[in-house]
Nucleic acid binder design. Structure first.
Lengths: 155, 155
DNA sequence: TGGTATAGCATGGGAAAATATGGTAATCAA
DNA sequence: TTGATTACCATATTTTCCCATGCTATACCA
């Protein structure tokens, strides 16, 4: 029943000569549960691949249609870029997807890829780049927003 | 009656060579009642593991998505940090979870772990570290007692 | 009150299943 | 046909599952 659908954890997998890489088992589980597909595109803000369920992109499309005043022109442009760039990636019976040359190049991925959970989305990084990025983020967050991190109390 | 969603008490359990440790029975009860899972991640503020229900994390995902722009840098950083580090931990029929090497290392846990209830969350400590931490906290609280006592209200 | 039965829990070990990954065969397009 | 893409098999390793044992706390009875 009501499982939540979060992409979590940080997992490193090998990428072979054909660009094949195992989608983490947890991620595959989400795809099956939701009867959706994984969609990937080049991140607009970082040298990495970004992915989510096709379902989420669909919601995003709805949001934009129904609340034009809420989204800025800039964001509208960004979504155009994403929808134009995004592609469906289905995994085979062993759980692997085949990343395209375009995506691999953008993320500078050659023989290994790191899947990083982002909740409703996830990212795929070159391992070394991710190591640096994680360090940057930790430093940044601790510096600026300690209040955001600790003890968010609801209701 | 079943709406007691608080992680409470302080319980010490053994950690075996495989990293297995019994989740306290009370915690397992919460997981069953809520039909959710336990999620653990490295605490940002202390050398310990922090845990909560996946449900709580899911709420956080919704909050972040609704309160910040879909494409904001801050949102990107936050989601990477939180969800990238967190992982789902399901317990087996005997009530044990298997802690990852990363978490054990962060909390300096080897052969025993202390579960400390924190209400909506809990923490897992190396026993000795927790002993020190508890002493520190008590000292701190006592120092500021006049302003802290008798104000917390729970339902 | 004290001793004992009982149920629930923690823990050790081993069997079974799932996963990642290399390789090969089948399919499709140009 | 040829090159490229996709689907399928094989296997080693990791992870998960389950049985068995011992311990602890609570209930129960004399």
């Amino acid at each position: 029943m009501g499982k939540s659908f979060l992409f979590l954890d940080t997992i490193i997998n090998k990428v072979d000569a054909k660009g094949r890489v195992s989608l983490p088992a947890d991620y595959r589980e989400i795809v099956k549960e939701l009867s959706t597909d994984i969609v990937c595109y080049r991140s607009l803000s970082a040298p990495c691949i970004e992915g989510c369920t096709e379902e989420l992109l669909s919601k995003l499309a709805n949001q934009i249609e129904s609340s034009l005043d809420f989204f800025s022109q800039t964001q509208d442009d960004l979504t155009n870029l994403i929808f134009g760039d995004a592609r469906r990636f289905t995994f085979d019976s062993t759980g692997r997807i085949v990343l395209s040359e375009k995506l691999l190049k953008h993320a500078q991925i050659t023989d290994a890829a790191v899947f990083v959970g982002k909740g409703r989305k996830f990212q795929i990084w070159n391992p070394i780049n991710w190591e640096k990025e994680e360090a940057r983020i930790r430093a940044e967050i601790m510096k600026n927003r300690p209040s955001l991190m600790f003890h968010r109390e609801e209701d």
